[in-house]
Each structure stands twice: as structure tokens, then as C-alpha cells.
């Protein structure tokens, strides 16, 4: 069976520093995988490679069987054309730590832009799709607001609606609650849990251990550019097999929450 996402021997360098040292990961459709690990372990970089926000020097990433970003012609590996990469990026949706909403557009405008310009939807159709997703994240009544008029949690929910309205095969979440005030974290996590219930395939980089425990079908622990350990949330959080994971969990918020 082909997986939704197949990462094979992924290598990524920033100059001399090797950040990813051979990552392998398979993900089936409908899975929710949380990626945990200390800062600098490469989890965000891996996520960013999947939609080509970072180039990578070795290995391959496939989504639905399509090789992402690079092709090998006559034994020479080269970057695909920018238009092709743009098209492939639309296979995934991404939500960022800093939200990155377009400040000069309303909430509705933010969600609608990709629908009109990338999906080539008619204006009316795009509007109704955008409104439906704003409604799903509980912000239909804020559709005319600009990002500067919304709270951090609201901005992040709009950003998630913007990504998911594009109907991606896979959603990528990059520490989406890390920039939020504590009291705003839950409203965003709730939105992600709702999406999980709907069967959305999601790869989530997070520091929220309790959330990871509750939402994921599998958890991946990244350590120094490699996958240190992977398993079900119960295996990972209750019976960590490696010293490194046990060590990491001891210092994480999950322990404090218990």
C-alpha cells in the first residue's frame, strides 16, 4: 500500500551544520502524528522540508506517491520548476507559530486568497467556502476583521482556516500554540482536535504533551536530527524505551500536568 507521506533518509544541512541526519517516516491517510523533541532536534525543519520551505540535500519525500521538490533526471538530482513546486505545496497546508496572516486583508480575505488565485474558484464560491471554514473555527462573526483587530488565538484559528480551506491532503502544524498567551492555547487546540475527529491527516510539531497524548495516533520523538523513538502515545509517554525520551519527558510540561 502506498502511504500518504513517505520520508526516506532525509538529509538537510544549513551550511556546515547537519540538521537532519537521515529521517525515515511513513504516515497513512487519516493519521494524526505529533512530533516532539527539544529545540534544535530538527522537528520544525523536517516539517518545512515537506512543503519545500526548506531545501534538502539528500533523501526523498513523497506525498501520495509524488516526489516533492526534486527529480532525478539521468542520475542528476535537481530542483523542480517553481510552478511545479508551487502546485505541490498546495498538497499540504501549513499553520505557523507566528500565524503569518496577511495584515492588509480581512479574515475572509485571508482565507479566500488561495481559493481564488490557486484553486481558481469563482468569487462567490470562494466566499462561501471561506465562510464555511471561518464558521468551523468559530469566527464567522469576525470575517470582516483585520488580523490587527483579532486576538492571537483568533488569528491562529483564521490561519488554520486559511490553510485547510485549500483542501490539502495533509496538514502541517508548526508549534501553533507556542506564541500564544496560555489562556488562548485551548481554543486553538480544540480546533485541531475537531479536525482530527473529521479524519484530517495531520503532522503536528508541538510542545503541548498532554495535547499530543490525547490527539495523536502516533508520536514521534526527534533527537539530534534523527527519529529517536516512535510509537503510540501510551507507549511513548507511559513506557519510554530510550533513556533520551525518558529524560526529555521528565523536563516537559506533561509531567507537571500530571
Amino acid at each position: 500500500m502506498t502511504h500518504l507521506l513517505e520520508i526516506r533518509d532525509l538529509h538537510k544541512r544549513f551550511g556546515e551544520t547537519e540538521v537532519l541526519k537521515g529521517v525515515d517516516c511513513d504516515m497513512a491517510k487519516g493519521e494524526v502524528i505529533c512530533v516532539i523533541g527539544s529545540s534544535g532536534s530538527g522537528k520544525t525543519t523536517m516539517l518545512r522540508c515537506i512543503n519545500m520551505l526548506e531545501e534538502f540535500q539528500g533523501g526523498s519525500i513523497r506525498i501520495d506517491g509524488q516526489e516533492i521538490g526534486y527529480e532525478t533526471v539521468g542520475g542528476v538530482r535537481r530542483r523542480k520548476k517553481e510552478t511545479e513546486i508551487a502546485r505541490q505545496r498546495a498538497l499540504t497546508g501549513m499553520a505557523f507559530q507566528q500565524f503569518n496572516l496577511f495584515p492588509h486583508m480581512t479574515a475572509l480575505g485571508n482565507v479566500r486568497l488561495g481559493l481564488v488565485k490557486v484553486k481558481k474558484m469563482a468569487k462567490d464560491e470562494a466566499r462561501s467556502v471561506a465562510e464555511r471554514w471561518l464558521d468551523r473555527v468559530g469566527l464567522l462573526d469576525r470575517k470582516g476583521h483585520y488580523p490587527g483587530q483579532l486576538s492571537g488565538g483568533q488569528q491562529q484559528r483564521v490561519a488554520i482556516a486559511r490553510a485547510i480551506a485549500m483542501n490539502p491532503k495533509l496538514m502541517l502544524f508548526d508549534e501553533v500554540t507556542s506564541a500564544l498567551d496560555p489562556e488562548l492555547v485551548n481554543e486553538v487546540l480544540q480546533v485541531i482536535k475537531d479536525l482530527a475527529r473529521d479524519g484530517m491527516s495531520m503532522l503536528i510539531v508541538t510542545h503541548e504533551m498532554r495535547f499530543a497524548f490525547e490527539v495523536s495516533s502516533r508520536v514521534i520523538f526527534m533527537n539530534q536530527g534523527r527519529i529517536g523513538e516512535a510509537g503510540t502515545p501510551r507507549e511513548m509517554f507511559v513506557n519510554p524505551k530510550t533513556e533520551r525520551l525518558a529524560e526529555f519527558l521528565k523536563t516537559s510540561t506533561f509531567q507537571q500536568a500530571n
Binding site: 512543503n51 519545500m52 520551505l53 517553481e82 510552478t83 508551487a86 502546485r87 505545496r89 498546495a90 499540504t92 497546508g93 501549513m94 505557523f96 503569518n100 496572516l101 496577511f102 486568497l113 488561495g114 488565485k117 490557486v118 490561519a159 486559511r162 490553510a163 485549500m166
Partner: peptide, 10 residues
Amino acid sequence: EAAKAIGLTF
């Protein structure tokens, strides 16, 4: 990056 992520060209 956000623009790229929704598939907009340069």
C-alpha cells in the same frame, strides 16, 4: 512563507 504554503507563485 505563508503565501508559498497556500501554493501562490512568486
